[in-house]
């Protein structure tokens, strides 16, 4: 019987071994994880631009890719070339400052013909990622002037910290809605982009409690009809607003019946 057992074991192992061998003879391909878009100090301009391209193609092209909601930055515009070339021509050395400004305070430089819908990108990206996007934009026809000093000057790798630096103490709800970039997505007074549900009439749709919940934990519930934009609203307004500011906004919105 032991001879039979040994034969069975040997046969099974031989069959298993044969299949393993076949799988080893053929090309060995491993599917790699795409590189994470996290840039740290010491990144070269090229690395920055490459990382920025990835960020740009995932974050920005939702609006900038189509050229309808926002201008397409990487194509030629009125014969002046893509964004890097135009920016270099217009601002020279100050190009990167201009780009930084338009990413962090986009309302100040809205291209004619487009609505002011872009949020302050610091709510979406950390400082290094913003610099990476700038490097990528500069690489489009211009030259990359972002250096690692820009990176090091920013607190490294902390998600959305920079917003704290520009916090104002105002409790004027309209001021706050503008400053926090709410109006980048939500319409008010009948005008504005339709990315989030409009603020008009929100007080009759939601209770005070729901509004507060919606600001502090925006991804918990998604308004009907806005599923495609689920997850876009930054989940960190709780850190950005003081209690007084939050209550001011809640009161204001609850009053808009």
């Amino acid at each position: 019987m032991w001879a039979t057992n040994a034969k069975i074991v040997a046969l099974s192992l031989a069959v298993i071994g044969f299949y393993t061998l076949v799988a080893h003879i053929i090309p060995q391909l491993q599917s790699e994880v795409p590189a994470q878009v996290a840039v740290g100090p010491g990144a070269s301009p090229e690395e920055l631009a490459a990382a920025g391209e990835r960020i740009y193609s995932t974050v920005c092209t939702a609006c900038h890719g189509l050229g309808t909601r926002a201008p397409n930055l990487v194509t030629d515009h009125e014969g002046l070339g893509p964004i890097g070339a135009r920016c270099l021509a217009r601002f020279g050395d100050r190009c990167k400052d201009y780009l930084y400004h338009s990413l962090t305070a986009p309302g100040d430089s809205v291209v004619p013909g487009f609505a002011n819908i872009m949020p302050d990108m610091r709510t979406q990206l950390d400082a290094n990622q913003i610099w990476a996007v700038i490097a990528y934009l500069q690489s489009q026809g211009g030259e990359i002037t972002v250096t690692s000093q820009d990176l090091e000057s920013a607190p490294a790798q902390t998600a959305q910290p920079a917003a704290a630096a520009v916090l104002s103490a105002t409790t004027d709800p309209r001021e706050l809605l503008r400053e926090k970039g709410c109006l980048g997505c939500h319409a008010i007074d009948g005008s504005g982009p339709p990315i989030g549900p409009p603020f008009d009439g929100i007080g009759s749709r939601l209770t005070r409690e729901q509004i507060r919940e919606g600001i502090l934990n925006p991804n918990a519930t998604v308004a009907r009809g806005y599923e495609q934009f689920a997850g876009m609203m930054p989940p960190n307004f709780g850190d950005q607003l003081t209690a007084a500011q939050l209550e001011a906004i809640v009161n204001f919105l609850a009053g808009r019946r």
Partner: peptide, 9 residues
């Protein structure tokens, strides 16, 4: 967008 946020998170 969500993808990137996820990556960051």
């Amino acid at each position: 967008m969500t993808e990137l946020l996820l990556l960051v998170q």
